[in-house]
Each structure stands twice: as C-alpha cells, then as structure tokens.
Amino acid sequence: MSLGNHIALSRRHALGLGLGAAAASLLPPEQARAAIPAGTVLKVGDQKGGVQSVIEAAGLLSDLPYRIEWSQFPSAAPLLEALNAGAIEVGYAGDAPTTFALAAGTAAKIIGAVRSNPQSTTILVPGASPIRSVADLKGKTIGTGRGSIGHYLVLASLKANGLKPDDVKIAFLLPSDAKSALAAGSVDAWSSWGIYVSQALLVDGARAVVTGTGLMSGLSYQSATLDAIATKREALVDLIRRFAAARLWALENSNAYADIWAKTVGVDPAIARHTFGVERARPVALDGAVIAEQQATSDLWREFGIIPKRLDAAAIFDPSFNGALPA
C-alpha cells in the first residue's frame, strides 16, 4: 500500500510539527530546482519505513521539480537486484547488502549515507527458548536474508564469540518467511532489523540474544546507478537533500513521525515509536570514517567468503554528493 495514498502533508503542516531551522535550511534552493530538466523521472527503490515514508511525513514531496516512480521492496536483496537490473535508478539499503551487491558488479555507487543505532539489528529467539547467548546458538538454525544486515550480524557475533560460520546453520529467508519460521519452530533464531524487531519484541514475545551494538556500523546508503549519476545528478542531489531534511525533522519529532507512520501502514503506534526511538537515524557525510567502516564491513564479508575478493571501499563511494548535506 502506497504511503502516497494516505499522507499528503503540506510543507506548512510539516513546519507546524516542528521542522527545525537546520532541516529547513536543507530544502532545495530555487536555483538547484531550476537546473533539473523538465520531465525528469527518478525510479526510486525503497523498503518498508524507509525513504518515502519519512520524506512524505515531513511534507517534502508536494513540490518536486521531477517525478518519482516508487518501488517498494520487502528487504534489501530484491531492491539491490532491481538496481543491478536497471529497474530502479537509486535505492536505500544497509551497508552489508550494499557491499554484497557492489562487490558482485552492480554498476552503481554510494551517494548518500544515514547512520542508525546498531542496536536496531538483533538476533531474536522465542521468549521460552533456552538460548541465552551467542554460544547457545551453536548447532542451531538462524533465519535471515542472504547478504543482509541480519546475515552480517550473525557472522560478526559468531566471530566475536570465537565461533565459526559452520557452527550454526543459516536459513536464508525473506523477513515475512523468517518470522513465520520462528513462530513455527522451523528455525531456532531470527536475525532481523527495524520494524520487524520491534514487532517481534513487543507483539510476539520474542527475546533479544544479541544486538548490533559494537558489532556493526549502523550505516545505510543511497546507491545510484552510474547512468543516473551521469544523467540525473541534479535530481539525485535534490532527493538526498529532501531525505536529509526529513531525517532531521524525524529526529526532532520522533513520536509525531512514528504515529503518522503507524497509521499509514496499520501497526500499533507503540511499535513504530519503539522502532524509531531505537534507530535515531540521521544523515552523515561520506567521509573517511564512513569509508573506513565500510572497508571493515567489506573485509568481514571477504573473510567469510561471502564476496569473492577484497573490495576497495573507497572506490564504491561518490563523495561529490556531500554538498547536499548541511555544512
């Protein structure tokens, strides 16, 4: 269900909800808007609760100088497959699956970044499970998406606790299937993120065994195809600027955003508030620290044979889009 069918906040309404001066300063200047050719269309891939929801909730989609064709995906893997196939031109996904895709040869670069609290990625077990620690996962089956941030957390937590990947069995499943498998007892644990974790903890009675705190960067990226970077740069800059402004608005108005989001997708507001209260996502520049953290993520993928060769993280970033962020 499209968020656009349910939310049509005006910019004045967004300002009334507390769009701060820092966020307002990110709104597209008229000169930049005028540089976007008439008739421009951006094909944007998104995930549940991602780019579209926050920009729309902040009231920043009402005056676009181009048209967006939104495609919603259940997780990063199919989104990045669509990016590779050219079905979308820009998409939002976590650092781990983005590494996985770009290492496989997707003709794209990272043009924007958001950092969230790594705690929002979690390995979950049923409340009555005897599993209490990572060590207890030995010999068990964990459901998660291949190349996802959940997959990364499994490998990172095993390494941190002196275990090897073959000490567990990983069942590669989409989030909805992994949720069902955990409820049915087909898997012993589920490594997931964001809204899925909040629902499992607050509604399903699941329990966290380990989170990404200290094990993951919490970075997510906007990646664009090389063709879109070459031919639609102005529109991409505008999209990043709006997304950054919306993220700043959501930080200042976390409960307001959560309540809007919950009503739109039909979940308990407490679940949305928990999700966004933990994530605290904020835009960050593509700087040396981000590139170094991305290199560490890439190196872990390589260490465990998830990608075939070492990836030079610096080569997959385009820092020239940093100008869309506040100074």
Rank of each mutant, 00 (worst) to 15 (best):
F276K: 01
I36A: 06
P283L: 06
S254I: 07
G45S: 08
A224T: 09
I271P: 02
T106H: 12
G277L: 02
I36F: 04
T211I: 03
I170T: 13
L219T: 08
L153S: 06
Q199M: 04
A14Y: 08
E234G: 09
P126V: 03
G45R: 05
D188F: 10
P130C: 13
S192L: 03
P126A: 13
L202G: 07
L215Q: 04
A96L: 04
Q72R: 12
Q47E: 12
K48H: 08
G91D: 09
A200K: 11
G323A: 15
W70L: 04
R11H: 05
P28I: 11
N253K: 00
V90H: 08
E293G: 15
L174Y: 10
K48F: 11
G205C: 11
S320C: 04
A96C: 11
Q31H: 13
S220G: 12
S186N: 15
T264D: 11
P29T: 04
L3I: 09
D95N: 12
R67F: 02
V210H: 01
R146A: 13
T213P: 05
G147W: 04
K48I: 12
A178E: 07
V125R: 05
P78D: 05
F304L: 13
A281G: 13
F100Y: 15
V134G: 06
D166S: 01
T121A: 14
A24C: 12
P308H: 05
I271D: 02
A24M: 14
G277F: 02
G86F: 13
G162K: 13
R233S: 10
H6T: 14
Q31P: 01
A178Q: 02
P269Q: 03
T98C: 10
D287M: 07
N322P: 01
K138M: 03
F172P: 00
L64Q: 03
G50V: 02
D95Y: 03
A313W: 14
F321M: 03
K109G: 07
S223A: 15
G194I: 01
Y152F: 14
A108T: 02
A230G: 13
S217I: 11
S25F: 07
A228D: 05
F172M: 10
G39C: 04
E234I: 06
S192M: 00
L15M: 15
W249A: 07
A206C: 15
A244Q: 05
A93G: 03
V41I: 14
L27H: 08
A272N: 00
A224Q: 11
Q199G: 10
R115S: 12
F172G: 03
E252I: 00
S176C: 00
I307N: 06
H6W: 05
V41E: 14
G162R: 07
S148Y: 02
I306E: 09
L9I: 04
A58P: 01
A181V: 08
M1P: 07
V209P: 03
G4W: 02
I316A: 02
D188C: 09
G86H: 13
Y257Q: 03
S198D: 09
A292N: 11
V267Y: 08
G150M: 09
S10Q: 06
A281L: 11
L219D: 06
Y92C: 01
A281E: 08
N117R: 15
S53I: 04
A206P: 01
A228Q: 06
W249E: 00
G147V: 12
T225I: 11
A327L: 14
A32I: 08
R115L: 11
S176V: 08
